[in-house]
Write a protein that binds this DNA or RNA. Structure first.
Length: 550
RNA sequence: GCCCCCGUAGCUCAGGGGAUAGAGCGCUACCCUCCGGAGGUAGAAGCGCAGGUUCGAAUCCUGCCGGGGGCACCA
């Protein structure tokens, strides 16, 4: 019995209790079902009676008793206890619960998929690091979380475009190219320039490709360094992200928005909506109409577009390319954008929060010897994605960056990374998967097959706990998608791995010594296969490998 | 001054109003004649402070304290 089926049974029980006149209330739209922490509280628990008590005008326990009585008449329910203030503690009969194992094995890689975003096209923009240096540890967090979120949204039925906004002009790029030129000429790093050692490497690569470059005028040389340096840097960023398991569907160059006239079209569109006005020789967008704290300059008084002009055009461009929902992941240092971006969305006549979502993630803090390490491209003090991957590998890096809520600032201890220790929960989860795989292959060697499936034999406490945990997976995926919170999948996997390890210690799939193979062994094999499937499906959503051996 | 995020075990972090607040690491004591001990069992140890809403608050609201990040005709 799946949680959904139980929820339906519970709903029917409430309706039936109302029909018999036990109490009167509307059947709630949402019925909360949870897996109790304490096994004595049954397989599932519900607070539905507590919530209905007030509208029904009856004591919670009285409502609970009536629902419990009606629920017992539903199929597959073994026991219903009323406990505490009015909780319903539900025990599902073993055969019905055990059916989950078969359901999961038959669904295979599809187990956990939902259709909640079916038909929706979601454009997810993340990383979008400027090509002025390698992807640093903050960018890596968004790479890991963003890619995992994309996978989760897809698992919920959405069509997802992974998008990278590539900022290839402006003051930061000028500083980058000046730094390259200075390095090539053997001059000190310019003020406001970038100082990392990668600057020298890129400069040498450009020189090697274009030996005559230093014969040009300073301005021409700098322009050559800009173009070649940005191209090299960008290729390097793409390659590191690819090695990290993250590939984008669309790279949009900021320049292209200007060259294609998209900026002009966006402004025309907003003018037609009546949201544009002229003042002080500049062109403004009246974002204060929609909650922004000040209006924003779109075209500066010198005739140059302001930064937001690109944002306007880019948003419109994504919508015109078919995105129903535009999601952008940003670091905490960009939270000041939220107000104007949402107002901009409303200026286009769209619905903020629906057509546009901004996910603000907090920073990664590095710690060494118990003290914070300040990082910056300009100072050259950066920990890059490649440093992180070299130290702990892709799986551990992705996992540790994804298992925490993006709302929390994350602390990474460099000493721990250097030791590349096993102190990472990813090992716990991957080991559980490896164990299932070895267990299944060992069972095969012992001649145990899945020709018999007798779910009522899965009756150990560790088995029913494991089964209810497995049954939760689709709800976890759905919730992670609704809330844009991939870390929920990771935390679920850790819990599931724990339930599996405990089951493994308390139940044999392969009989000991010369004992005969029984139907219990065969049926347990189904449970092992189901567990492996869910662990693999979950790890896939995180972009972490599910090895058969560790 | 205004805005956003955070404050939970020694450390890193979970916990969408529910029962005795969890995990990993660390610490203490245990468990392999048996499917991989990178595992399991038992234990010590915690919701920043003060109000409020509620039958019920780590969770929602207000104030305070502490930490981080923002408030350009910069990009």
């Amino acid at each position: 019995m799946t949680p959904d089926q139980l929820t339906s049974a519970l709903r029917a029980a409430v309706a039936s209790a109302v029909a018999t006149g036990a109490f009167s209330a509307e059947v709630p739209a949402e019925i909360v079902l949870e897996r109790p922490k304490n096994r004595e509280h049954g397989d599932y628990a519900s607070n539905v009676a507590l919530r209905l008590a007030k509208p029904a005008g009856k004591p919670p326990r009285e409502v609970a008793d009536a629902i419990a009585k009606a629920l017992l008449e539903q199929d597959g329910i073994a026991k219903v206890d009323v406990a505490g203030p009015g909780f319903l503690n539900i025990t599902v009969d073993a055969g019905s619960l055990g059916e989950l194992a078969r359901t999961i094995v038959e669904a295979g890689a599809g187990y956990g998929r939902t259709e909640q975003f079916a038909g929706q096209h979601i454009n997810l923009e993340f990383v979008s690091a400027n090509p002025t240096g390698p992807v640093h540890i903050g960018g890596v967090r968004w790479a890991a979380v963003g890619d995992s979120l994309a996978r989760i949204l897809q698992a919920n039925g959405a069509e997802v475009t992974r998008e990278y906004y590539f900022n290839d002009h402006g003051a930061q790029i000028d500083r980058f190219s000046r730094s390259l030129l200075a390095s090539a000429l053997g001059e000190p790093t310019p003020e406001d320039g970038y100082a990392g050692s990668y600057i020298g490497e890129i400069a040498q690569q450009v020189l090697a490709a274009e030996p005559d470059i230093l014969g040009l005028s300073r301005d021409e040389a700098q322009e050559r360094f800009r173009e070649a340096g940005v191209a090299l840097m960008f290729a390097e960023i793409k390659a590191s992200l690819h090695d990290f398991g993250v590939d984008f569907d669309v790279y949009t160059h900021e320049n292209s928005l200007y060259e294609s006239g998209a900026v002009g079209r966006a402004i025309d569109r907003l003018r037609a909506q009546g949201e544009i006005f002229e003042a002080d020789n500049a062109t403004w967008l009246r974002t204060t109409d929609y909650g922004d704290d000040k209006d924003r300059v779109v075209i500066k008084s010198d005739g140059e577009p302001a930064y937001i002009a690109g944002d306007l055009a880019y948003y419109l461009d994504k919508r015109e390319r078919g995105a129903d929902k535009v999601v952008i992941m940003l670091g905490a240092d960009h939270h000041g954008y939220v107000g104007r971006m949402m107002a901009m969305c409303a200026c286009f006549g769209d619905t903020p929060g629906e057509n546009l979502q901004l996910l603000i993630g907090q920073m990664v803090n590095l710690v060494k010897d118990g003290k914070p390490v300040r990082m910056g491209k300009r100072s050259g003090n950066i920990i890059t994605q490649d440093d992180l991957v070299d130290a702990v590998g892709v799986d551990a890096a992705r996992y540790s960056l994804t298992r925490s809520s993006a709302d929390s600032t994350l602390e990474i201890d460099l000493d721990l990374l250097v030791r590349a220790s096993n102190e990472n929960p990813v090992h716990y989860v991957q080991y559980a998967h490896a164990r299932t795989a070895q267990l299944i292959s060992h069972a095969g060697a012992a001649g145990i097959t899945r020709e018999v499936f007798s779910p009522e034999l899965l009756e150990l406490p560790s088995e029913t706990t494991l089964l209810t945990a497995l049954g939760d997976f689709p709800r976890v995926v759905a919730q992670a998608g609704q809330l844009n919170e991939p870390h929920r999948v990771a935390r679920y996997l850790e819990e599931l791995a724990g339930h599996f390890h405990r089951w493994y210690d308390s139940a044999r799939v392969v009989p000991v010594g010369d004992e005969p193979v029984t139907d219990t062994n065969r049926t347990r094999l189904w449970l092992a296969v189901a567990t492996r499937q869910v662990l693999a499906n979950g790890l896939q959503l995180l972009g972490v490998s599910a090895p058969d051996r560790k």
